[in-house]
């Protein structure tokens, strides 16, 4: 049997194996290129009706914080919102909100209706800051160390399970955080 007639099927076998392995992977596991790196510089005004805006300096106050990307038009955000409220009430961790591409009055109404777990908020009207943070889709939650470096990132709804599996061990110091260059 001549090689040139067998080559197509040989190539296909390789492809099929890759597709098979690919199926077992979760396309949501997208690590951020920014993990271990300093969060991008930004300085945003607060969401309408609030006084404290959000800037890079807020992430360098010496303690770990969560940065949660949310929007009023984002339905899954409602799903994770009660958990964020619990965390804020229990003072587990400081939570900062990055409000992505929202209408100011919608964002204000949303926080009024569902409660405001955020210590400070940044209104990212044009989505530019979100792009710099490498946000794929709302909601996303970042864990930032006290020096302004991103330690972890979760895409999609934050659940208690995710929190306990991925966030809390780093926050409690039980798991070594990734190397940072801050």
């Amino acid at each position: 049997m001549k090689l040139k007639f067998v080559l197509p099927i040989a190539l296909f076998v390789v492809l099929a194996i890759a597709l098979g392995v690919g199926l077992t992977l979760n396309p949501r596991d997208i690590p951020s290129a920014l993990i271990g790196k300093p969060a991008p510089e930004f300085n945003l005004p607060p969401v309408q009706g609030r006084t404290a805006g959000l800037a890079t300096a807020d992430l360098k106050q010496g303690e770990m914080v969560l940065v949660n990307v949310f929007a009023s038009w984002c339905v899954p955000c409602r799903e994770e919102h009660p958990l964020l409220m619990d965390l804020a009430r229990a003072r587990t961790v400081k939570i900062y909100g990055l409000n992505q591409r929202d209408r100011p009055e919608d964002a204000e109404r949303w926080l009024a209706a569902f409660g405001d777990p955020y210590l400070k908020t940044g209104a990212d009207l044009d989505g530019r800051t979100s792009i710099e943070w490498g946000v794929y889709g709302v909601p996303e939650t970042f864990l930032v160390d006290g020096k302004g470096c991103i330690l972890f990132k979760h895409i999609s709804v934050l659940t208690r399970q995710v929190l306990e599996r991925d966030f809390l061990p780093i926050m409690r110091g039980e798991r070594a955080p990734p190397k940072t260059n801050c």
């Binding site: 049997m1 007639f5 197509p8 099927i9 296909f12 076998v13 099929a16 597709l19 199926l23």
Partner: peptide, 24 residues
């Protein structure tokens, strides 16, 4: 996904195997 992949392997793999045997 698994079903489609199995089907894909059957169709493409099968036809390429047939090709390897019969094309010469």
């Amino acid at each position: 996904g698994v079903f489609i992949l199995a089907f894909l392997i059957l169709v493409i793999g099968g036809s390429l195997a047939l090709y390897a045997v019969r094309a010469p």
